[in-house]
Structure formats: structure tokens, C-alpha cells
């Protein structure tokens, strides 16, 4: 199981700031695919993924127990 965190417009689209996903050993790319198809999240191409608070690449592996944050383009400052 992985813990997913959502921010900004993604949080509003999904209607929650976090969800748990029953899965293990998937790539970042696969996760984005799941979110697109199963959760109807759009614009996933612009979204960065952080695994346990570190930015990850499309081929990085997400394991059960990881905390995965979906990070839309940032606008701090």
C-alpha cells in the first residue's frame, strides 16, 4: 500500500488531501497512468512526483509503505 498526497488543484479535483492505494512496485509513470484512468486526474504530464520527500523520475520505483506526493507546478515566493 502506498500513501498518496495531493496539493493545490489536484487536492480539489480528487476531493481529498490523501488517499491510500493498494499497490506495490510500480513506476512513477505507472502511478500517473492509474491516477489518470481511475481517478480522472488531468494534466498529469505537468505533475512532478516526490517519493518520501525526494523528487523522482518517471522510471523510479514506488514500493509499499512509500509516501508519494503529487506536485503540480509550484508557485511559491
Amino acid at each position: 500500500m502506498i500513501n498518496l498526497l495531493f496539493f493545490a488543484h489536484l487536492q480539489e479535483e480528487i476531493g481529498n488531501d490523501k488517499i491510500k492505494l493498494e499497490t506495490d512496485n510500480i513506476t512513477v509513470k505507472q502511478l500517473k497512468g492509474i491516477l489518470k484512468t481511475d481517478y480522472n486526474l488531468s494534466q498529469m504530464d505537468q505533475v512532478m512526483v516526490a517519493i518520501n520527500e525526494e523528487y523522482a523520475l518517471e522510471d523510479d520505483i514506488i514500493k509499499s509503505g512509500d509516501t508519494v506526493a503529487l506536485i503540480p507546478p509550484v508557485s511559491g515566493g
Binding site: A8, V74, G76
Partner: peptide
């Protein structure tokens, strides 16, 4: 690179600013 987002509230709407 810092994961912080701002949402602008206007007189006629609101939006998360992404770029």
C-alpha cells in the same frame, strides 16, 4: 523547486497558480 502553491482569489473567481 520548493513545493509551495498559491491560490489567487479575485473578485470574480479563484485559481491555483501553476506557472
Amino acid at each position: 523547486i520548493v513545493p509551495i502553491w498559491k491560490k489567487e482569489q479575485w473578485e470574480d473567481g479563484e485559481a491555483w497558480i501553476g506557472d
